[in-house]
Amino acid sequence: MSRNKRLIYLINIGLVLILFAILTILEASGVFTRYTMSILRLVCINVVLATSLNVTVGNLGQITLGHAGFMSIGAYTAGLFAKGVEIGGQNGYLIGILLAGICAGIFGIIVGIPVLRLKGDYLAIVTLAFGEIIRVLIEYFDFTGGAQGLNGIPRMQNFSVMFFLAVICVTLMYSVMTSRHGRAVLAIREDEIAAQSSGINITYYKTFAFTLSAFFAGIAGAMYAHNIGTIGASVFNYNKSFDILVMVVLGGMGSFTGAVISATVLTIVPETLRQFNDYRMIIYSLLLIMVMLFRPEGLLGRKEFHITKVVDKIKTKFGKHSVEGGS
């Protein structure tokens, strides 16, 4: 690792810590109410959800409409695990979350291998179908609590833990996507035939991206289940999948920065619109149409915010040579 890269990493970590410190101070000093904090926790969950869907939609370039299905697998895994195995505490939470990711990931493989042969809108409708099947089955079986849902999941509403979990998830996804495996996934998005003819096993890497995406959706689902304490399958219907997709597309497909920002904005803004409760969804859908009409590529397009670029600018300003390469 070159000195420059090390510097970049340190700056990134520093920025995250500063953001965390600001949020903590605002909480401790009472500027942020309990209600504000509950919204911020939702932001953490939605950031993981949006970035995880960004892996399939933005990076692999395949539209899926069943993301909520993977989220529900994670939520139920974590919920059942926490209720069945009483480890409790931070450790129990983290183990449950990891397990949720793994279960959702396994479902990702099971669903991905057959459906990823399909393309475009066929893939979209089949993933929607899978999402709905998962929902119906959860409601059908008894061990999941059936249509009544699953109650009494131990609450875990520690903001610090959720904040760093989200940061870690996004970082891990980002670093995979900037490794050779991620490049292969991007190449498939750009041109499947050229990717194949360059030696990329497209079945493998499509399944890989899909599974990675499902894994982190599962983690988000687990965070959600522990945050809210009661889950019902109907929450995870196709409308939830649409919501997540909207976050990704509005942010600009393929951009993690965009996904993070739009997940944050799209969580906070509707909450602040609560005073116009009746008109909230109408405004939201109008905005959605407007953004698509006037900026069809999403707000950020494929751009990423790189601290590298900022450092570059500062360095050239002070007459030093520039940093090269990504991340």
Binding site: V57, A124, V249, I282, S285, L286, M292, P296
Partner: peptide, 13 residues
């Protein structure tokens, strides 16, 4: 995908 999202938007509206 922009068309798809717009369709979802119209439907919600």
């Amino acid at each position: 995908i922009s068309n798809l999202i717009t369709a979802i938007g119209v439907s919600l509206l």
